[in-house]
Design a protein around this nucleic acid. Structure first.
Length: 412
RNA sequence: GUGGGCGUAGCUCAACGGUUAGAGUACAGGACUGUGACUCCUGGGGUUGGGGGUUCGAAACCCCUCGUCCACCCCA
């Protein structure tokens, strides 16, 4: 038997409806905030990710699917979407507009050990606001995201925010932190000691007991922000409050991509085990210019679709009722073709049960197909211009004229 | 990449190292030629994940491998 490769999953019926629900809700809501969809390629030149994500990040160092194509160019299956969105923004000179709001969805690829909520091919819905430095942009994007989670009824979500500063103040803080950590290297875990020079901030986020203890009194980045970053961060919180959001401040939150500046955030949910981040993102004011575009402040985020779907599946979502049509006899069969077609024109979700044999068996099949309603057209009904419609949940049955069926089913 | 748990029928799971690996459920048919879920009968289903080893004898014990789950790492 040929199976799918490790970490690459099929999304089967039963799950795919939940996915569609999430994606369609996102499109609808994002659109009301002025976002438009951009379709991006799944493969990019490796260099794009090296330069955007950062050469010393875990993603670039050990998680990318990279391969040479037939001409020997190094290509990579995208591990995230922001890099591509920014590349397209620059390539097509979208910066001539005052502000650009984009969203996209699709698979991302990272070579990691799969576990619950983490797969090698996984799906994200991403959104990027390009060309807006206002703290209102940060707050509005977060409001939009929380609105989506509210709309799809995602339970147990927590919003945490932080500010990572800018090229002016972050190095100052890094220096402070380094001084603090210098004489504590004995208490830090192996990992944190290794990256103390490349990325000392990681120690703040480390879960090993030694690191937690050692960094307990570490200086806070929020207190080291420059005037500009500080006001920005305060305003973001002010506007979030106006939107009715009260995020938890987490000065220890560090992101895995190098391009973030100022505001960063993370939304976690309950019931996912240790991979509990359902959405995350932040501001990246330097990325566009680093990739060769004009200086452009941006804010963006990504949602992990399978993680959201896992939670919604746990909670259960309602799906549209299915009707199964059964005709008895050649003449009823012929009339049925016309009737079923008419119901579908009206948007009724109806399948026909084609098998022959005793009605009892056909009812049984209809039940197993998941029918909410079974619509029966036999000789008696045909002659009177009606059908029998049975509600399989309520176990009630009524007789209705042909043109009342769509109305009856839609009424539910 | 590291550590641990688990792989037996489509699904959920039994089976002390010892007959022909079972049960529930699902599936096919019938009891029942116009009414599902409940009942009864019959039937098809298995390389016990794969490979090697120990043993008179392995689903079980050992090694390797693959898959899966959980955690670490990391992230969405």
């Amino acid at each position: 038997m040929i199976t799918a490769i490790r970490g690459f999953n099929d999304i089967l019926p039963g799950d795919s409806e939940i996915w569609r629900h999430i994606e369609e809700s996102a499109y609808r809501i994002f659109s009301t905030y002025g976002f438009s969809e951009i379709k991006l390629p799944i493969v990019e030149k490796t260099e794009l990710f090296l330069r955007s994500i950062g050469e010393t990040t875990d993603i670039v160092e050990k998680e990318m699917y990279t391969f040479p194509d037939r001409h020997g160019d190094l290509l990579t299956l995208r591990p995230e979407g922001t890099a591509s969105a920014v590349r397209a923004y620059i390539e097509h000179k979208l910066y001539t507009a005052p502000v650009t709001k984009l969203y996209y969805t699709g698979p991302m690829f990272r070579y990691e050990r799969p576990q619950k909520g983490r797969y090698r091919q996984f799906y994200q819905i991403g959104a990027e606001v390009l060309g807006d430095d206002s703290p209102r942009a940060d707050a509005e994007a977060l409001e939009m995201l929380m609105r989506l989670f509210g709309r799809i009824n995602l339970k147990g979500v927590t919003l945490q925010i932080n500010s990572l500063g800018c090229p002016d103040c972050r190095p100052v803080y890094k220096e402070k932190l380094l001084n603090f950590l210098k004489d504590k290297t004995g208490e830090l875990c192996e990992n944190c000691v290794r990256r103390i020079d490349t990325n000392p901030l990681r120690a703040l986020d480390c879960k090993s007991p030694g690191c937690i203890e050692a960094t307990k009194n570490a200086p806070s980045i929020i207190e080291s922000l420059c005037e500009n970053c500080k006001t920005h961060f305060e305003k973001v919180q002010y506007y979030l409050k106006l939107s009715g959001l009260t995020p938890a401040l987490n000065p220890r939150m560090v992101r895995g991509l190098d391009y973030y500046t100022k505001t960063t955030f993370e939304i976690t949910a309950e019931g996912l085990g240790s991979q509990n981040t359902v959405a995350a993102g932040g501001r990246y004011d330097g990325l566009v210019s680093e990739l060769g575009g004009p200086k452009t402040p941006c804010f963006g985020f990504a949602i992990g679709i399978e993680r959201v779907a896992l939670i919604l599946k746990e909670e259960g979502i309602e799906s549209r009722p299915l009707s199964v049509f059964i005709s008895l006899g050649t003449e009823a069969e012929a009339k049925g073709v016309e009737l079923v077609s008419g119901w579908r024109e009206k948007g009724i979700r109806v399948v026909e049960e084609f098998s022959e044999g005793p009605l009892k068996n056909r009812m049984k099949r209809a039940d197993r197909l998941g029918a909410r309603y079974v619509i029966i057209l036999g000789e008696n009904e045909l002659n009177s211009g009606v059908v029998a419609i049975k509600d399989m949940v309520a176990a009630t049955q009524e007789t209705l004229p042909w043109d009342k069926i769509a109305q009856r089913i839609s009424a539910q």
